[in-house]
Design a protein around this nucleic acid. Sequence first.
DNA 1: AAGTGGTCTAGACCACGAC
DNA 2: TCGTGGTCTAGACCACTTC
Lengths: 238, 238
Amino acid sequence: MEISKSSIIPAYFQVAEAIGFKIKSGELKTGSMIPSESQLCKEYNVSRMTVRRGLAILTQAGYLTTSKGKGTFVSRPKFEELVVNFPLKEKVNAKLLSAEIISLADEFEGIHEKLNLKKGSKAILIRRLFMHEKEPISYDKKYLLYIKGKPVLETDLEYAELPEMAEKHADVLPVKSELLITATTLQGEDALLLESKKGEAALVVEQTVYAQDSTPIGWGQTICRAEKYSLRAVSQPF
Amino acid sequence: MEISKSSIIPAYFQVAEAIGFKIKSGELKTGSMIPSESQLCKEYNVSRMTVRRGLAILTQAGYLTTSKGKGTFVSRPKFEELVVNFPLKEKVNAKLLSAEIISLADEFEGIHEKLNLKKGSKAILIRRLFMHEKEPISYDKKYLLYIKGKPVLETDLEYAELPEMAEKHADVLPVKSELLITATTLQGEDALLLESKKGEAALVVEQTVYAQDSTPIGWGQTICRAEKYSLRAVSQPF
DNA sequence: AAGTGGTCTAGACCACGAC
DNA sequence: TCGTGGTCTAGACCACTTC
């Protein structure tokens, strides 16, 4: 009785909204069972596939869980899935510090392991500084697999993210990304580049990008001045 | 010809795997158009709804984008949606420092704004210390709306996350969560609690939880010793 | 045996884009 | 006008849980 079929809003979405509202408003309590799919078909006067599609939206968001042979139950939404916004790209200027082919020897301790390469093999290193209102706010290093004969186009490097760089250069689609977020205090070269005092707080974001066969194809580290830059993440299931 | 209908694996999933493989392996290039749904029906000998369900998985993951009237195209997967793991809960001991009703006056500068309350109104403050192998690794404060007459059960507080606390106490389902991740250096009370030297790096995670009508129902801050604790996030669309 | 959710089909109509 | 993806239907069979 509630679904308008002439509406621009699809029927399945109206079903999701209607049931979602009952959950959010407390009419359907956490843990309780909702009416069966066939009952909902009658109630909303739509086919079972349409009901199921609506329920799927709420299930995906974590508001419902289903149990074969038993029923569909109300649960608490999940907040583990986040959308991360790397902030204010528009107002940031990127400055390419260097883009070079390096040999993964002692001075790049540990990088060859992260890229699953032998010690001494070659890689591409790209270093960039990011400015906001003429002040340096962050600084990154990215290491890519070295592919013989493939040039690195400087024009592409200014604002590109690691997955795009890796795809363009290695010609492999990235399928997995891992982030590690830590904090540190700025020392030596890092403090110098970011025009900060030693001992200031900084956010460190490490990213590893993998290809289909789980081999790493890129590794990067971004160091951000804590007062100028923070990471924001939102989770709103439905 | 490729889909086994007697398999335990649903036909729609096999379709997603088959097309996903062609994308990941490079057979279908980024930007190119894939065969139309009706063609895929013939190719895999399944109905259109089954094809569409398979394509929906890849679309959701960002490997495909669709355009009404034009077709379905290969694109780069999205890595903006992350699953964040708050690390090693199993091996961590929580110690309840305090759970009290406070008045949001001067000493809690700014909290009343974050909870959208008047200055001087009441709130619940819960403070906890987390230990790992007898060393303090993090410390949090959580502020909840004060509901008259609702007791705070200490037993629930040990390991509960902010959304659960907010739901239990305010009896409102949280529908949105915001995280703000920054870095700082430990000072004064924080350093003392975490048994650290002044000036050490720490990760700060702020969380605000909202109800359906966008009113905040809880605010929390976690301060983590950087050497002991880092945030890990993975994104693997499909 | 009856009811539940999970899968799948073979059609149908629609809005949109390209020709 | 034709082909495309987006929606929707009315059935069907299955595996599972409960009684």
